[in-house]
Design a binder for these strands. Structure first.
Lengths: 245, 245
DNA sequence: GACTCTCCCTAACGGTGTTAGGTGGCCCGG
DNA sequence: CCGGGCCACCTAACACCGTTAGGGAGAGTC
């Protein structure tokens, strides 16, 4: 019915392609979230039956791998200006807001190995900046993983209750207030600190929490860099040479 | 058939209880992983049909909430000896190995709000140590969340490909080597750093990666503490009083 | 003895990922 | 011009999943 060639439709390539699968999947993901993305719905979106998808894709897992790379396609690294610290902070902030920007992206990406070409380009770029900042090869590699893990982990952590709350129809301000009330209602003899710090524990927004952790991480990296510079002061910083001993 | 009281079986309390559900669920989780834990299998484990579970539990989500708290039941905080830094490090290490110790615990726990009493006790204890170390209330609250998010996020990140690899029947050493080979095989003109650092990127174990990140975090916290001490040197450290102005 | 409440049952609904096997149309060799 | 083969889709089915409606046995209470 839909497949018969009408006046002058696309008779040349009316077929599904792997790319068509992915872009349709992206559309469904944005519209219905990761729970709404089933093989049957994806097939329906393409005017096709579910079994047909398996001609183009081995299974759903592989589709999600492709989707992961597609989600990373339009992530842009920050401008190459400012200190290494500014650049890394911007990296983290952008990475997080990129993941938060497309619905359930973090859930799809979560822990998926086999990084696609787009993620590889970001890694390549970040490693370059880390080495240029003066980190050792081993440290640069570790830091590269660390920052990715921090961002992914944090976002994953914040996204799950977020979607649970919106499923229940409650705003995040209400959730925070409810959490505060719960903490304040605890027995003060068994949980004195939780009761005492109920406000401090519940008022920070996720943005602030993320920024706080990121800043601590950057402080730690600065310490590492200083230590490395102090231990081996020959590299690229020819100011003085304390060659005693 | 199974329910008829025989010679002298348990005629007193042959009923399911919520606790029985949870311990059976823990058993299934350990044996079959989170994907093997369905309401039907849980019911079968208890010699009962699936619909019966809904008498004791609202839905699967609530069961997972209960399971989350049960998974945290036997987590013990580190001894209260050594510097705040030693204690926090030990906290992180224990928390991670606790999650890794029971199968798929991280996947169940992931981002589940409504922390149970066991998790609350850990929070309470950690907050107490943070305040004692000299962190401000606001900082202590932030740090408490940060450390939890780091551990949870990291473990979640590492657990997913781990189970994927073991499903494929490959050891983690093979995975690392395969990743290294993939990186080395990249075009060196487009990905010079990835090719160059292929070894550094793939040799660290997850233990080392976690410890590295944790140490950077602790360094960052130390910086924060020093800054706070320098800005307001009146608190609990009565050595001298620079009361000029 | 009747009533109620607890607790488990059967049956079913509407979903899920995935596979086996069929089938129409197209291109290519003869 | 005709037949084989392959591509790309189809139908049908399997074995699951979470969840609900409604039934019914048994115990406890008035």
């Amino acid at each position: 019915m839909t497949a018969l060639p009408g006046a002058g439709e696309e008779a040349a390539t009316p077929q599904l392609t792997r790319e068509a699968l992915v872009t349709a999947a992206l559309r469904i993901l944005e519209r219905d979230g990761v729970n709404g993305l089933s093989m049957r719905r994806l097939a329906a979106e393409l005017g096709v039956k579910a079994a047909s998808l398996y001609w183009h894709v081995r299974n759903k897992e592989q589709l999600l791998d492709l989707l992961t790379d597609a989600l990373m396609a339009d992530a842009v690294p920050p401008p190459r200006r400012g200190s290494w610290r500014d650049q890394l902070r911007e990296y983290g902030l952008r990475h997080r807001s990129h993941l938060l920007g497309r619905r359930d992206a973090a859930k799809v990406v979560a822990g998926r190995l086999a990084p696609g070409p787009h993620l590889l380009r970001l890694m390549e770029d970040q490693l370059d900046r880390l080495r240029e900042a003066g980190f050792s090869d081993a440290d640069a590699a570790q830091i590269n993983y660390l920052l990715g893990a921090y961002v992914h982990g944090f976002v994953l952590q914040e996204i799950t209750p977020l979607s649970a709350a919106e499923a229940a129809g409650t705003g995040r301000a209400e959730v925070a207030r409810a959490a505060g009330d719960q903490l304040r209602g605890l027995p003060a003899d068994r949980y004195p600190n939780l009761v005492d710090l109920a406000d401090d524990l519940t008022t920070p927004t996720m943005d602030e929490r993320f920024a706080f952790g990121l800043e601590r991480l950057l402080d730690g990296l600065a310490v590492l860099l200083e230590q490395a510079r102090a231990a081996a002061p020959e590299a690229a910083d020819p100011e003085q040479e304390p060659t005693h001993e």
